[in-house]
Nucleic acid binder design. Structure first.
Length: 429
RNA sequence: GCCGGCGUAGCUUAGUCAGGUGGAGCACCCGGCUGUUAACCGGGCGGUCACCGGUUCAAAUCCGGUCGCCGGCGCCA
């Protein structure tokens, strides 16, 4: 008989045979009967091992096998209200594949301990379902890009351009030259639109910021897209369509996972275009009316973002930030004071999930702004070339996968959106 | 970078204010139990009280320093 997944075993009828394998999730014993709950990637099921139904060795092994021992079980399905899930297996054979040592994680755990034992905590059901949601998100994003004529490309994460900030990049020795870990693939994607027109990529991005919040990772998975012949407004349209596509598919196809992490699928079903657009200067007014001490030119902090999405059940765009507060590559608007950009803020105070903009085509303007930042212009020559050889209007955006997952899976901390979080004081395991 | 909190058994913690032989629950081991659901009952194992120094007859406890971690803010995506 072939092994089957626990999810399938749970669908079988009274009296049918089954054969499963997995890890011991819970165990209780009582003299001549042992209750073992087995876990695999698809779910959990209770197994009953009675002394007179299996061999003496099998019973003795079942008795001494600790939590997380790996096992193979063959038996008969019985419907029983007392079993979690309503069905259980009465074992006719029980084989321990690998005896587990005493598992360090027990019922009481602290955040610190779980982070130290991340490699083991990943076995928890909450982490398992969260990782599945992330995989589904990626699947639906890929589907959406495929259906919208985008090419997936693979830029480098090693770069000589210190890109944005400057102080917040990780540098390392590249055979005698100083090189950096990428903070964004954007400029490389811009180079690729001149042949492929619409491109997207998924790469790790690194930020050496000493941020210590529930929204920041040192290393995160950065989804970026770049589109030729697209201006800021159409760029926003693409973003809201993609986000809506992902949310609705997750809501329809991942009910089990959503329920497990405490997110009502209805919250995601209502996500559909268009998303509200608010100009930066109007956002400032709204915040002032709400009593914040903020004026033109100030950046939004977490409390401001929360206030702006208050009462919204869909994400919103904040557009046209002041030139000074945004990067050199964003196109300056006709008013000369703002740039053609849009930040997408998730509802419920989850903060910025997408930052996008139309790209500047005027080389002089970019040089001016780069100089103000104190950047080394020579490193950008190749980037300026893109404007010299048949430039076109183009736009793009970047999305933090973990931030999107935080919102979708209603996570309290971004570290749980990735299996091995890199945090300010933690890169182990 | 700033503010706050924490560090006692493998884990979660009481004890610190007010100095005087460090207790408990879980896990694990042994025994009992044929329907458990965080099983239960009896017994057992388990401690450099983060580290260094000081005060004191006596320090987990008081004082000084160091290290580690957590939460928030700022910065940022």
């Amino acid at each position: 008989m072939e092994f089957e997944k626990i999810k399938n075993a749970l669908k079988k009828k009274e009296g049918e045979r089954t054969k499963i394998r997995g890890w011991i999730y819970r165990k209780r014993k009582s003299g001549k009967i042992i209750f073992v709950v087995i876990r695999d990637s698809t779910g959990i099921i209770q197994v009953i091992i009675e002394k007179n139904k299996v061999t003496e060795k099998e019973f003795a092994d079942a008795k001494k096998a600790l939590i997380e021992s790996s096992v193979e079980v063959e038996g008969i399905i019985h419907e029983d209200e007392r079993a979690p899930g309503g069905r259980e297996i009465h074992a006719t054979a029980f084989n321990v594949v690998g005896f587990a040592e005493e598992f360090p994680i027990t019922e009481y755990q602290s955040v610190e301990f779980l982070l130290d034992n991340r490699h083991l905590w990943l076995r928890s059901r909450k982490m398992t379902e969260t990782m599945k949601l992330k995989a589904y998100m990626l699947r639906f994003i890929r589907e959406w890009f495929d259906e919208n004529d985008f090419w997936e490309v693979t830029p480098s994460v090693i770069t000589m351009n210190a890109a944005e900030g400057g102080a917040t990049v990780f540098s390392f020795d590249y055979f005698g030259q100083e090189a950096y870990l990428s903070q964004t693939a954007q400029m490389y994607l811009e180079a690729l639109i001149f042949s492929l027109e619409r491109v997207w990529s998924l790469t790790p991005s690194f930020r050496a910021e000493k941020s210590r919040t529930r929204r920041h990772l040192i290393e995160y998975w950065h989804l970026e897209a770049e589109e030729a012949w697209v201006r800021n407004e159409e760029n926003m349209k693409l973003q809201e369509e993609m986000i809506s596509y992902v949310c609705q598919n997750i809501a329809k196809k991942c009910k089990e996972q959503l329920e497990f992490v405490g997110r009502n699928p209805e919250d995601l079903m209502v996500i559909e275009p268009p998303f509200k657009r608010i100009k930066y200067r109007d956002a400032i007014k709204i915040l002032q009316e709400k009593g914040f001490d903020i004026q033109w030119g100030d950046d939004f902090g977490a409390p401001h973002e929360r206030a702006l999405v208050e009462g919204e059940d869909k994400p919103i765009f904040i557009t046209n930030f002041p030139v000074e507060s945004k990067a050199f590559y964003m196109k300056i608007a006709p008013d000369g004071k703002t740039v053609e950009c849009a930040d997408m803020l998730a509802p419920e105070g989850y903060g910025e999930i997408i930052g996008g903009s139309e790209r500047e085509e005027d080389i002089k303007s970019m040089i001016e702004r780069l100089k103000k930042e104190g950047a080394n212009i020579e490193n950008y020559e190749w980037y300026f070339d893109l404007r010299r050889y048949g430039s076109v209007p183009h736009s793009g955006f970047g999305l933090g996968m973990e931030r999107l997952l935080c919102w979708i899976a209603k996570l309290e901390h971004i570290r749980d959106a990735t299996p091995f979080p890199r945090l300010l004081r933690r890169a182990y395991p």
